[in-house]
Amino acid sequence: MLVEKEPSTWKELQNCVGQVFRDIGFEVLVDEKDFQLRGGDTVNLDVWAKDIELPTMPTIHICECKYWKETVPKEKVHAFRTVVSDAGGSVGYIISQKGFQEGAEQAASQTNINLITWDDFQQIFEEKWVKSMYSQVKDKIDSILNYINSRYLSNDFKGEGEKYLKSIRILGRLLSLQSTFIYDLIKESKYPLKIVEPDGTTQEFTNRKKYFTELLKIVESIKQQFEGIVGRKID
């Protein structure tokens, strides 16, 4: 699961969709009122997300979230096709809790509109999401290790044995975290995911979002500890 808690309302569904896009690194608007369409009309959009990986050719995703007790009729698909086109969307997704009525699939056939469930949405973006979350953790770890490699031994702890020993303990925690993190990636994130401390303390996760959130929290804590020892920010 790419969020900490399954959505149980329309509002939660659109917020979850928006959060997944944000975690990937997209520019995101959620519950955008009076979005300007071509021709001057306005519309309310549930989720608008722009993939800026290729700035000269951004992909714009527009999502309509339907946490209805009924299936979505084809008329909604026709209307949404017009919205996506007039809003400059590259691709549109209607994300339905209960599925779609007969005729809706045909209305979306051979168009840029995808009729999906919340689980489908997570599967579509899972690879990008994992790659992005991995990069966030790796970048934080690398920023600390790069600092150590470039300045740590030669400058910051000369003649300060207590600081040196404290920093070694913190470094040991970071390297332990890094090794279990890499192992989880090698085994392709099969559950449970684990965070193992040097003293053997282990946290297990069956939720990817909670796993990566806790990893980022711990690495940030380690970074702050190093900054407290050296008395400066680690860039």
Rank of each mutant, 00 (worst) to 15 (best):
L175D: 02
N44Q: 14
R38E: 12
E12Q: 14
R232F: 02
L29F: 12
Q122A: 02
N44I: 07
D41L: 11
Q225K: 14
F205V: 10
H61I: 15
Y183I: 11
D41I: 02
T213K: 15
T206P: 05
Y183T: 09
S109G: 02
Y93P: 06
N15I: 08
K210A: 13
G40M: 08
Q224A: 14
V47Q: 09
K131C: 04
G92P: 00
R38A: 07
T111F: 07
N112E: 11
K217L: 08
Q110G: 02
Y211G: 05
L174A: 01
N112R: 12
F125M: 04
S135F: 05
V130A: 01
S85P: 00
A104W: 09
E64F: 08
R151Q: 04
T59Y: 09
G89N: 01
K158V: 07
R173H: 11
G25H: 03
T9N: 10
Q225M: 12
S189H: 14
T202Y: 08
H61R: 01
L13K: 05
E214I: 06
G18D: 05
R22A: 13
G161W: 08
V28T: 05
S143N: 03
L29N: 08
R208A: 07
Q122L: 04
L165C: 05
E32S: 02
S132T: 09
S150G: 06
E53M: 05
Y211N: 06
P198K: 08
D142C: 01
K233P: 01
P192K: 08
T206H: 15
K128S: 09
E70A: 11
D46M: 06
Y67T: 01
